[in-house]
Nucleic acid binder design. Structure first.
Lengths: 334, 334
DNA sequence: CCTCCAGCGCGAAACGTTTAGCTCTATAAT
DNA sequence: ATTATAGAGCTAAACGTTTCGCGCTGGAGG
């Protein structure tokens, strides 16, 4: 492997000039050409480790997500990775298996690896620690969930209006008793989605029956339980919104097991995974989050911060979702 | 951030001795203690970049998979990552979006990042290039697919016996005309799965009707087309094996669209994703690959190679699969 | 008592960059 | 003609490690 020294020797120029060239400094046109050829000829490749030693930059970005088995996150990661790679950054991806203790540990791992920036989805690990990072001038971007009281850039879906619009579709179709299977209390996304549900009821002057609001844990099992509970109640809902992918799966499993006919016995709108929506019968209506946009926005924002551009910090990007209505939703006649 | 120098100054020992301690060399017990305390006190952290500059090790492993949106691969990656992290390695994960050109590019990216080792799933990129890596004494482990004529460690599922056993289940249930939706010709996994199909037919003295063997492209769409084609033929199969996750999805979509009743009109066994198997109606029989085992085996093997232990190189690990029969398969009466 | 040797520690060079500060030259401004 | 200025290149130090080769010490073997 040839080094900057070899290029210097080959061209007759000094090491400093080569370095200047590499980093885009001012070099005479004729020397530019000379260096360019030499680099090609000698197959010179910059040594990121030597460079990192001087600059304290590793050219790697840490990405931390709750689970690598959750396609919502991995899709976003895939997009982020591509964009960062075009700027020469490698990405170290960690998941914490939905475990808050592990979240902390993995975050520390990333920091110990000297990443230049972090994009993360937090389930509420050590907020103090996360805050302390923002002091270390290593840019951190929060994905999917905001954290109260932490001044960091954030990219989220418009969760409130997502559930607002989904429920609105059901209301327009004359449903009066609409159930919702939500995430845990005090979880950002869940709280927002709950707010949307409540607000649309208010806007349409519909009463809210607290019993129709089931709080799950964003797991398959809790989705299953939620559907069971709602179906067993005295005056069960005629329509239902399930607010994440895993719980949607659980709910559908319960629907199958209980032999509930969709949509005549229950209209249902799920969340997130378009592909699955096509596999189940009848085709499932879903709320689609703008994964591509989320990934792009986060990656570009991070790149901007890495360049030292802290304009409008902390920025909050709230991206629009889309509701796809399919045969799993029925219009009630009254 | 304190350096090895600070520790030396603090303890009154030389830099060399501290380095020795850090790397597990011989140091007097009393000095060990001294150094240990100093490190703690000064919060000394080894600088991997400086170290890397000397040793040419980055303590990062490259992982290359076809798609981050394929849960089969991401599950394996998640396991690998955990194990490597326990040994201090970070992992740079790249996907190539099922695109062979991109495979090559991403692989080069990983190499340019000076990873210490690579675990990859190849769709058949530049074999010469991959071979050249094995010359560079950077260990490479092939996952999921073997490549002919390349001497590298390999961890794969026992694809041949996977389809053998799945089809055997159908044969035992008296099916005589069994269809298979397979991957592309000249693809390792697909060829193996085809072989299993053929061998079990031979072992049970059943004729093979070439028309029952559909070659898809491991995509949702080709699974859909495959089912359509098989169903439209003159003497359609009574049972079907679909040999990857995406094509299984496609096949189920087609079954829904064509209103085919499972299992009375068609028995079906799918591949890979247990969760999905529970969501569709009736519950889907599937072939499960040992993802956990695959990940563990690959990670541990790589760790071994990184230590310079090249015992039994190149090693081939062929791991057993498991067939889960559910209501989607029916026993024929004759 | 001398010689060897192992164990432990040390000094210093090296890894491949970046960058501050300098010199030199050519041109513009006076 | 003189001076100021900007552009281009150079020298050398520094980043934080690892490691080679050496020296010292003390105990074992003769």
């Amino acid at each position: 492997m040839s080094t900057i020294k070899d290029v210097a020797k080959y061209t007759g120029l000094s090491i400093a000039t080569i370095s200047k060239y590499i980093n885009g400094g001012n070099v005479l046109e004729q020397n530019r050409e000379l260096i360019k050829n030499a680099i090609e000829k000698l197959e010179y490749k910059r040594n990121d480790m030597a460079r990192g030693l001087k600059t304290n930059k590793t050219m790697t970005i840490g990405i931390l997500i709750p689970s690598l088995e959750n396609i919502f996150f991995t899709t976003i990661v895939s997009i982020i990775e591509d964009i960062l790679q075009d700027s020469g950054y490698g990405t170290i991806i960690c998941d914490f298996k939905e475990n808050v203790d592990l979240e902390q540990k993995k975050l520390e791992f990333l920091v110990s690896k000297n990443v230049d920036g972090i994009i993360m989805v937090s389930y509420g690990g050590d907020l103090e620690y996360i805050k302390s990072l923002s002091g270390k001038e290593i840019p951190v971007i929060l994905l999917d969930r905001m954290i109260k009281g932490v001044d960091l850039d954030v990219v989220v879906a418009d969760n409130l209006n997502a559930s607002y619009q989904a429920v609105e579709e059901l209301i327009i179709k004359k449903h009066k008793r609409i159930g919702i299977i939500c995430g845990p209390k005090n979880t950002y996304t869940a709280d927002e989605r709950r707010k949307g549900y409540i607000r649309v009821h208010q806007d349409y002057n519909l009463d809210i029956d607290e019993k129709l609001m089931f709080n799950g844990r964003y797991t398959v099992e809790s989705g299953y339980n939620g559907l069971e509970a709602l179906k067993k109640m005295e005056n069960p809902p005629t329509a239902l919104l399930v607010t994440n992918y895993e719980m949607t799966i659980g709910a559908i499993m319960a629907i199958n097991d209980l032999n509930i006919v969709v949509p005549s016995e229950l209209s249902i709108i799920g969340f997130d995974n378009i592909q699955m929506a096509k596999v189940v019968r009848p085709p499932l209506s879903i709320v689609e989050q703008p994964m591509k946009e989320i990934g792009e926005t986060a990656a570009k924002l991070l790149l901007k911060r890495l360049k030292g551009d802290y304009a409008s910090f902390p920025a909050v990007h709230r991206l629009k979702t889309k509701v796809h209505i399919k045969e799993s939703v029925q219009k009630l006649v009254n």
